[in-house]
């Protein structure tokens, strides 16, 4: 069938262009056209809202009131950005989303240290040491990775309250660590399983110390997986809303919570340009992380066995 169709096409073209040498044009197949269309729609699905947000954040309220959301701004002005950063109001506090930005930073580092520290040691112990009940523990971890956060939200409030960390940055960090621990421990465990057994045997004969082998041999070999986990964790901690809302007190609310307040609780007219600018400011840090570390991310998840 295809040969018939192709030869007839060839024929049609040779009538159109009566040149002796038929042009060697690369024909696009219907299947690839379908894929291209699909991908374009996917891209538009993300790009159109992004375009609207960026454009709106640069408009004045006068222009926004006219309602044409796709129009380019009349003039480029960053007033809304400055307001969003410095003066927008979350509740009665009008100090902009920068408060949230610094809160988020303050939450990010303890959460990263706690969650990655806990899970990489757990993964190391499960993968390379003879831990009694290791498989049972792994199975439980695996099951825990599927428990929705909402189910344990209220009990965790009591637990953090009991530990006197409720409403503090460390409270949020503990909750982040607890929630990320199952999946991260599995990731680390699988990565460390790829380390040749003989390296571990050699280290056992040389030292035998759990922490010494971890810090001197295993940790330096974990660069790739650390990058992967760092990106995963930075993104999820920064983008988190529910944990910050539930466990953050006054003054420890992350940027996402402040952003929601800015957008939801405005008095009088909604300042769409400020809202959009605030949203962009909040979404910015994970984007930067992706651009800076993205190359290592691909390396990390595709890295195979480590050769000695």
């Amino acid at each position: 069938m295809t040969t018939v169709a192709e030869s007839s096409l060839q024929h049609v073209r040779s009538v159109d262009e009566p040149v002796a040498f038929p042009a060697q044009k690369k024909r696009i197949k219907p299947a690839s056209i379908a894929i291209l269309v699909f991908l374009t729609i996917c891209a538009l699905f993300f790009c159109v809202p992004l375009y609207v947000i960026v454009v709106t954040s640069l408009k004045s309220m006068d222009q926004i009131r006219q309602g044409d959301i796709f129009a380019l701004p009349w003039s480029l002005n960053f007033d809304a950005w400055v307001t969003a950063w410095d003066k927008s109001c979350s509740g009665t506090l009008c100090q902009g989303v920068k408060v949230g930005f610094f809160n988020s930073l303050a939450i990010l580092f303890p959460s990263l240290i706690l969650s990655i520290g806990l899970s990489c040691v757990t993964g190391y112990a499960l993968a390379l040491w003879n831990v009694r009940w290791a498989n049972t523990f792994l199975f439980i971890l695996f099951m825990c990775a599927f428990v929705p956060f909402q189910i344990i939200m209220v009990p965790l409030i009591y637990i953090t309250g009991f530990l006197h960390v409720y409403g503090t940055i460390w409270g949020i960090a503990v909750v982040h660590a607890v929630l990320a621990m199952p999946i991260l421990a599995l990731i680390f465990r699988n990565y460390y399983k790829g380390i040749p057994q003989e390296i571990m045997s050699a280290a056992l004969m040389d030292s035998g110390s759990f922490w010494r082998i971890f810090s001197e041999i295993i940790l330096p070999m974990s660069g790739n997986i650390m990058i992967v986990v760092l990106i995963l964790q930075i993104t999820s901690i920064w983008n988190d809303f529910l944990i910050g809302l539930t466990y953050g007190g006054i003054g420890t609310q992350p940027m996402t919570v402040i952003l929601a307040n800015v957008v939801i609780t405005a008095l009088g007219e909604a300042n769409y340009n400020v809202d959009m600018a605030s949203a962009l400011l909040t979404a910015f840090p994970p984007l930067v992380i992706y651009f800076v570390l993205g190359r290592f991310f691909v390396q990390g998840i595709t890295a195979g066995a480590i050769k000695g």
Binding site: P196, E198, I199, S201, A202, A203, M205, E216, I217, P220, M221, I306, K307, G308
Partner: peptide
């Protein structure tokens, strides 16, 4: 002290 088949040298050292 032991010498391993795959050498098992510590790759980062």
């Amino acid at each position: 002290a032991m010498v391993f088949q795959s050498y098992a040298l510590y790759p980062t050292k």
